[in-house]
């Protein structure tokens, strides 16, 4: 039994995008040249944010945003196909593209805008299919997808543990946490550890009980977590 979670230090994030690229490589997210801000797919996205000031008082930060792995899942409750399920053994919210009919109710219900719709069939430049991760199936046109804490890695870790006669998956880390050059993203098990003191969660007032914890020493960054609050925070 696990309850996987993530802790992200916003003050350490340099917005390099290594997590976005590592995630896309790991999870076979296609490089669709026609994809854009609205129709593209990226399971994790780093948003540049600022405090809305100008001149010397202006401050900026980067906010990595992915599926918040809610315990109280707004997406699962609206899915007519049971294509979204919270795995009670891991705490991971899974998405099953085989069941998804593409109604996108879940995208509307998600308060974090962390779900993406496949507007096109996945396509790779000639020959690049050979570099795809064989542990993760590409998703077809017409279904929704999102971060699942690199479920392929979890399966691989489980298999490895089983081969060693163990029950719990050891050495399981999602690609974003593994690739983060500054160590801003930390992956941990809530049953074995706790988030750092002063951590906060996004839109906590909604009661979604997310498992992605953020932290920052800057008050205006914490303020973003409860936006909109009437102040002019800028989420680019």
């Amino acid at each position: 039994m696990n309850r996987y979670a993530m802790s992200i230090d916003i003050d350490k994030c340099t917005g390099c995008g290594a997590c976005m690229i590592a995630c896309a490589v790991e999870n076979n997210v296609p490089p669709l040249p026609q994809s854009n801000d609205r129709k593209g797919i990226t399971w994790i996205r780093v948003f540049p944010v600022d405090n809305g000031e100008q001149g010397d008082t202006r401050q900026s930060a980067f906010l990595p945003m992915m599926c918040q792995q809610c315990d109280s899942t707004p997406c699962a409750s609206v899915c007519p196909q049971q294509a979204v399920q919270l795995d009670v053994k891991t705490g991971i919210v899974g998405q099953m593209p085989e069941r998804c009919l593409g109604c996108r109710y879940c995208m509307t219900a998600c308060p974090y805008h962390a779900r993406y719709f496949n507007w096109w069939d996945p396509k790779w430049p000639a020959g690049m299919e050979a570099t795809l991760n064989p542990d993760v199936a590409p998703r077809m046109r017409g279904v929704v997808e999102k971060c699942n804490f690199c479920h392929g890695r979890w399966h691989a870790a489980k298999e490895q543990a089983a081969s060693q006669g163990k029950r719990e998956a050891a050495d399981y880390t999602p690609a974003c946490a593994e690739s983060c050059p500054t160590g801003a993203i930390r992956f941990f098990d809530l049953l074995a550890g706790t988030p750092e003191a002063g951590s906060f969660r996004l839109l906590e007032k909604l009661g979604t009980e997310t498992k992605i914890y953020y932290r920052s020493k800057r008050a205006w960054v914490k303020g973003l977590a409860e936006a909109p609050d009437g102040k002019e925070h800028h989420l680019a």
């Binding site: 976005m20 896309a24 490089p31 669709l32 040249p33 593209g40 990226t42 790779w124 430049p125």
Partner: peptide
């Protein structure tokens, strides 16, 4: 740039 550096990534403001 590698094929993965699509418009989406550029719109995210990431130089990379």
């Amino acid at each position: 740039k590698p094929p993965l550096f699509t418009k989406l990534y550029e719109e995210s403001g990431l130089k990379g």
